[in-house]
Simulated scan of single mutants.
Amino acid sequence: MTDRAPYAADPANHGGREFPARRGGHDTAEPGERRGPRTDFQRDRDRIIHSMSFRRLKAKTQVFIAPDGDHYRTRLTHSLEVAQIGRVLARALGLDDDLTEALCLAHDLGHPPFGHAGEAALHEAMGRHGGFCHNAQALRTVMRLESPYPGFDGLNLTWDVLEGLAKHNGPVTAPNWALAERDAEFPLDLKTWPSLEAQVAAVSDDIAYDNHDIDDGLRAGFLSLDDLLEVDFLADQWRAVERRFPGAPRDRQLRELVREQIGLMVNDVLTHTRAQVEGLGSVEEVRGAGRQLAGFSPEMAEHERTLKAFMYEKLYYHPEQVAAAERARDTVARLFVAYSQDASLMPDEWQERLPQTDPGRARTITDFIAGMTDSFAMRCCAQIYGERPRGLTNV
């Protein structure tokens, strides 16, 4: 294993936890103290894996809404694939791979049902009350909503994990209400760049969905080889695959194309990031660098932007996808209206915690809906309105 780099986050010297370690009554440690076989970042990862919010990702949309097929990715399998790429990058760079893995596994915990379509519906419904953002909702989830311990709300993750979730895409200069509330209660230094582990988690997410969405799009028939060959970067890799595996079944060649691209992107990130961090001696210097250090080279970044534009045109904005997204948005919007008008439609435990006035009331209703799986949201809509939403399965 690669030696720990001087600019890596240190689980024995992390930024602490919001609540004192002993309040939870479970195996944890104060900063600098080691109890049991796990580091604090390993404990954080395990708390995320054992959370109900993580388990529910198995039935939340990644690309296709409520797909019939068993082989399409969900938010859960996507998160696992992000974590696999993240660990590879972190180990090769000498970073803390447990912190990286925890961030990769938790980055989508705030996603509502039906992916970005559900997020758009909740943002519109919450327009008068500060809107909705899945990144901020992930932080709200691990800090307040997911509460298995008797001594405090939330999972009581280390500052380093919370910081990485809050700003894995970079500094936050205008936090929405959810992020601002959490930052006020446990300051996360929002205006600086995060650790390299958080930056690696972000680029791992890009690598995973850029390429695995191609795989799912091909399986669904929304993308074809001819489509892929319109992108020079993909065409170059396809020709290389054909030369290496002439006569192989087409489906295996296409899967090899996806693997080849992931490898190219991973190696590019390693080369570029090593050059960017040369001479840095601490994680504090990473946060104070004032720029992104872990990511694609300028050339690969341009390829990646071209690939994203292609995927939006051919897959994400495919007419069938757009139609399904509109039906999904309508389902979420109708749920919000129903619960706002009649709170008795919500489970007892949610009624008990529901404030009487806004914005707290609307935000709690949003918390309930955001935690739903695709299938549960459709069942709730059917129970309230008398019919199951139609046309949401588009593959």
Rank of each mutant, 00 (worst) to 15 (best):
Ala5Gly: 11
Pro11Met: 08
His14Gly: 07
His14Thr: 04
Gly15Pro: 07
Phe19Met: 04
Ala21Lys: 06
Arg22Trp: 15
Gly25Ser: 10
Pro31His: 08
Arg34Phe: 00
Gln42Val: 04
Gln42Glu: 15
Arg56Ile: 04
Pro67Glu: 04
Asp70Leu: 12
His78Asp: 06
Ser79Tyr: 01
Asp96Asn: 15
Glu101His: 12
Leu105Ile: 10
His107Thr: 00
Leu109Val: 03
Leu109Arg: 01
Glu119His: 11
Ala121Pro: 10
Ala121Asn: 03
Ala121Trp: 11
Met126Val: 07
Gly127His: 05
Arg128Asp: 15
Gln137Ala: 11
Leu139Ala: 03
Glu146Thr: 07
Tyr149Gly: 06
Tyr149Leu: 06
Tyr149Ser: 10
Gly164Pro: 02
Leu165Trp: 08
Leu188Ile: 10
Asp189Gly: 06
Leu190Asp: 03
Ser195Asp: 02
Leu196Ile: 01
Leu196Cys: 13
Ala198Val: 05
Ser204Gln: 12
Ile207Asn: 01
Asp213Phe: 09
Leu218Arg: 08
Leu218Ile: 01
Leu223Ala: 09
Ser224Leu: 08
Glu230Met: 14
Asp232Gln: 14
Phe233Tyr: 15
Gln237Ile: 11
Ala240Arg: 14
Ala240Tyr: 04
Gly247Met: 10
Pro249Glu: 11
Gln253Val: 01
Arg255Tyr: 03
Leu257Asn: 05
Val258Asp: 08
Val258Asn: 10
Leu270Phe: 12
Gly281Ile: 02
Ser282Phe: 09
Val283Cys: 05
Ala289His: 10
Leu293Met: 04
Leu293Asp: 06
Pro298Asn: 15
Ala301Glu: 05
Leu307Glu: 01
Lys308Pro: 00
Lys308Gly: 06
Phe310Met: 15
Met311Val: 00
Leu315Ser: 03
Tyr316Glu: 08
Tyr316Asn: 11
Tyr317Cys: 03
His318Tyr: 09
Ala325Leu: 02
Arg327Met: 08
Arg329Gln: 15
Asp330Thr: 13
Ala333Glu: 10
Leu335Ile: 07
Phe336Ile: 03
Val337Gln: 13
Ser344Phe: 05
Leu345Tyr: 10
Leu345Lys: 06
Glu352Ile: 00
Leu354Val: 07
Leu354Trp: 03
Pro355Gly: 13
Gln356Glu: 15
Asp358Cys: 02
Pro359Arg: 12
Ala382Gln: 12
Gly391Asn: 07
Val395Trp: 12
